[in-house]
Design a protein around this nucleic acid. Structure first.
Length: 415
DNA sequence: AAGACTAGCAACCGCAGAATA
DNA sequence: GTATTCTGCGGTTGCTAGTCT
């Protein structure tokens, strides 16, 4: 498949943008919308390629961009999402209102990554570096399985980001088609792209679905394995674009054959208290640095021994009186779900699943919601502090999911 | 005071996937 | 079904300002 360069580079300017160029680009987009980026430079009188214009707009000129120092909360968000998503900056940016993927990427590379390294935490795995030495024991296997599970959530976040993009496209397309309307000047003095999104955002539905899915008890997964979840009028089983119907190829998921031969999916919200999210969490940099100092003495934490069984094919774990075995291939089948659904209540499953995640994760030097590490020091294996440690770790994961739940993409820069 | 070094960030590059002809 | 175009993404580069020696 042939692919032409984004622009013929002859006579086109490169390098830093001048205020005059910025002004031209801003003026043109405010008046006409960006439309086709390729055609834009000529129309706007710029000696730049369309790609360069798009980057300048999305990373710098767009009016809904927040610039300046990252707050502690934003830092935590980045770290937590990075632990789940890796270098998927655009997906991370979806959950950081008014920050661009480029800015987040730069911030990660120049600040956060270095801090983690200083603390002895591998910025790729988000685990203490000496963990990598434990390559041949069960812990590494646990970690692998944990990451397997994380992929599940990763896939969901990715899909959500995708939906956000789609919504954005729809929104932009609407805006472009009605640019001459008075809404432009009333809703935003600076840009038409600040206009509110017209029409319902499917992303919101998805988030609501995510939040509300546990209202459907586990045992409603019937003998036929069908579980249909309808939230806010969106029948997820029938929605071809629903996040809940999208999976990363490699991501594990719980798949139950739907009535019509399709699949439906049950997602699990990790319930429980999220330790007080720093409300209004805008902190100045000094405070932020202080918190980071406290964070630093934790990297000696080790993974607790995970006493329940994990092997290549399944994961077994104990929660209270209940033993549970789940297959660890790429899908959790209706059969496995069904049988286990008979064993446990939804809340117990959540608890159990969360425990599984957390027991593999404790002592990783990850941030708790208040910006300090959940220092579990390998004690979660069953001593007196186990439940407390487990709670801390649960809070960590809950904070991630709460963060996802609470940050409506409609607040994000994508809109 | 001046040169060397470093950190931060804007911008570029190339690839991939979606959309379109 | 294929070729082409468009857009988005992530990695990388290179410039600039600040700091150190």
């Amino acid at each position: 498949m042939g692919r032409s360069p984004c622009c013929d580079k002859v006579g086109l300017k490169k390098g830093p943008w001048t205020p005059e160029e910025d002004q031209k680009l801003l003026a043109y987009i405010e008046e006409h919308g960006h439309g086709s980026w390729r055609a834009l430079p000529a129309k706007a009188g710029l000696q730049r390629c369309g790609k360069s214009c798009r980057l300048r707009w999305t990373n710098y000129l767009r009016p809904d961009i927040k610039r300046g120092k990252f707050t502690l909360q934003e830092e935590q968000t980045i770290i937590q999402l990075h632990a789940l998503l890796g270098n998927r900056w655009s997906a991370i940016a979806t959950h950081l209102p008014k920050r661009t993927d480029n800015e987040i990427k730069n911030y990660w590379n120049t600040h956060l990554k270095k801090r983690l390294l200083k603390m002895g935490i591998d910025p790729v795995t988000h685990k203490p570096k000496n963990d990598t030495l434990l390559s041949n024991d069960g812990q590494s296997k646990n970690s692998a399985n944990l990451s397997h599970m994380a992929q599940w959530e990763s896939a969901r976040l990715e899909a959500e980001a995708r939906l956000v993009r789609q919504s954005k496209l729809r929104s932009n397309s609407f805006q472009n088609s009605s640019f001459a309307s008075q809404e432009f000047t009333t809703s935003s003095p600076s840009s038409p792209l600040n206009k509110p999104v017209v029409g319902p955002s499917r992303c919101l539905d998805v988030l609501k679905a995510w939040n509300g899915v546990w209202t459907k008890p586990m045992n409603e997964i019937t003998a036929s394995g069908s579980a249909t979840i309808s939230v806010t009028g969106l029948d997820l089983e029938e929605s071809p674009t629903s996040t809940l119907g999208y999976f990363d190829q490699n991501a594990p998921h719980i798949s139950t054959p739907g009535i019509n031969g399709g699949n439906s999916t049950v997602l699990f919200e990790f319930v429980g208290n999220s330790s007080g999210s720093s409300e209004g969490g805008i902190m100045n940099n000094e405070e932020s640095e202080e918190d980071w100092k406290g964070f630093g003495n934790s990297s000696t934490g080790q993974l607790p021994e995970y006493k329940d069984g994990i092997n290549e094919n399944s994961v077994s774990f104990t929660s209270g009186l209940q033993d549970l075995t789940m297959p660890m291939d790429n899908t959790w089948t209706a059969e496995s779900l069904k049988s286990n659904a008979e064993q446990i209540s939804p809340a117990n499953f959540v608890e159990t699943f969360t425990d599984l995640l957390l027991s593999s994760n404790s002592g990783d030097g990850v941030l708790s919601e208040n910006g300090t590490e959940s220092d579990n020091g390998g004690e979660a294996g069953g001593n007196g502090n186990a439940s407390e440690n487990c709670e801390d770790n649960k809070n960590y994961w809950n904070s991630i999911f709460n963060l996802v739940n609470n940050s409506s993409p409609s607040d994000s820069a994508m809109f």
